[in-house]
Simulated assay, not measured.
Amino acid sequence: MPFVNIKTPEGALSLAQKEEIVHRTTDMLVEYFSEAARPHTMVLIEEVKDGGYARADEVFILPDAYRAKAGS
């Protein structure tokens, strides 16, 4: 069973964007593993709260400009 785990900042993606990522990721994996993989493919999108991720010594907070628009 193919399994993809995507971590993204909380609020960065709209529901529609997450759905598109799930569908496109599933389609990509089916290209590699065949159509038989589709019903067994798991795509998990985990949203990480602001301040819950960092690189080196810099803790990240998602800027408002990068947040998903309400209703999108």
Rank of each mutant, 00 (worst) to 15 (best):
A70M: 11
E10K: 12
I6S: 00
I6D: 05
I6M: 13
D57T: 15
T41N: 02
M42L: 12
E19K: 14
M1E: 14
L62Y: 02
I45G: 10
A56F: 10
Y32H: 15
K69I: 12
P63R: 06
E46L: 11
E46H: 12
P9S: 09
L15I: 09
H23R: 15
E46I: 12
D64N: 13
M42E: 09
I21N: 02
K69L: 08
Y53R: 02
P9T: 02
D57M: 13
E31D: 09
E46T: 15
E10R: 08
A37G: 05
H40Q: 12
A70T: 09
G71I: 05
Y66V: 04
I45V: 14
Y32K: 12
G52N: 04
K18Y: 04
G51L: 09
D57C: 11
D27H: 04
F33Y: 13
Y53Q: 00
K49M: 07
E58Y: 12
T25I: 02
E31V: 10
R24K: 14
R24N: 11
M1H: 15
A37P: 07
S34L: 07
E58D: 14
E10P: 01
A56Y: 07
L13V: 01
G52R: 00
F60H: 03
L44A: 11
F60K: 10
L29N: 01
K7D: 08
I45F: 14
T8C: 10
A36T: 06
K7I: 08
A36D: 13
L62S: 06
M1G: 10
M28E: 15
D57Q: 09
L29I: 05
V43P: 02
A16K: 04
V43E: 03
A65E: 09
T26L: 01
T25D: 01
G11H: 03
E31R: 14
